[in-house]
Design a protein around this nucleic acid. Sequence first.
DNA 1: CTAGTTGCAAAGAGTTTGCATGGCG
DNA 2: CGCCATGCAAACTCTTTGCAACTAG
Lengths: 133, 133
Amino acid sequence: MPKYITKQRKILTEYLSEHPDESLSANQIAEALESKISKSAVYRNLADMEAEGKVRKTAQGSGREVYYQYTDNEHCRGHLHMSCKKCGKTYHMEDSIAELLVEGLSEKENFSIDKSETVLYGICGECNKEVEE
Amino acid sequence: MPKYITKQRKILTEYLSEHPDESLSANQIAEALESKISKSAVYRNLADMEAEGKVRKTAQGSGREVYYQYTDNEHCRGHLHMSCKKCGKTYHMEDSIAELLVEGLSEKENFSIDKSETVLYGICGECNKEVEE
DNA sequence: CTAGTTGCAAAGAGTTTGCATGGCG
DNA sequence: CGCCATGCAAACTCTTTGCAACTAG
């Protein structure tokens, strides 16, 4: 969608690739880069990047929308994602499990899941550990 | 959370139970009931109902938050939900598949999924059919 | 040079809040 | 009758848009 590679776009891309597994709102990103990119440029670029499939837009449990980087990123494509409600980190689901799910849904419910838009919520291993301690 | 059962609350509950499987935004609901409940009452009641677990708040793919009824509702509790990106309907996942997923994630990834907050996105059987025709 | 992109500020959309009035129990 | 909930409007937050200035190619 964009035709020029601008300085701002580079900064944004760089910032996102430095925070690959965090869920960040457009506003958070805009504020973090406040001195370097205007808010409107952040919004416009995120929208472009979403259209290009370089970034995914999801919602965090209770609140506002969030974005996070994903394309260009090694193991993201074609994987299902899980987000920890506690620490906010994103995880990639093991293929064997994802396969079972995708096939099961397809065969038994005739539902074709969209891997890139689906995010499972729960508590990750790390955070589960903490609770038990 | 609420201490009184008001006329408005009844109307809202009734409206939601009449639209059990649709994803409705707070605004849509408020507009549909415009003549009967004020916008602020809709928002306040939805927030209360969410706290009580009578309603779930989720996000539809690209956009804003949505709500939909779920407690009091027979087969909702303890089930994973799937939402069709095309028609917007909500489906309940068959137990056998859900079990596999929940156990698989727990054992292999140590991730405990939150069934009530997770919604899988994709295309449902009905809509898949249409595409093929 | 020329069109796409930025920055700013103003406009929108959705949601929240303060306060007086009204209604449930 | 007392307290909670409602309604309205104003306040907020997040996001989008118009337009002149800037800049990548």
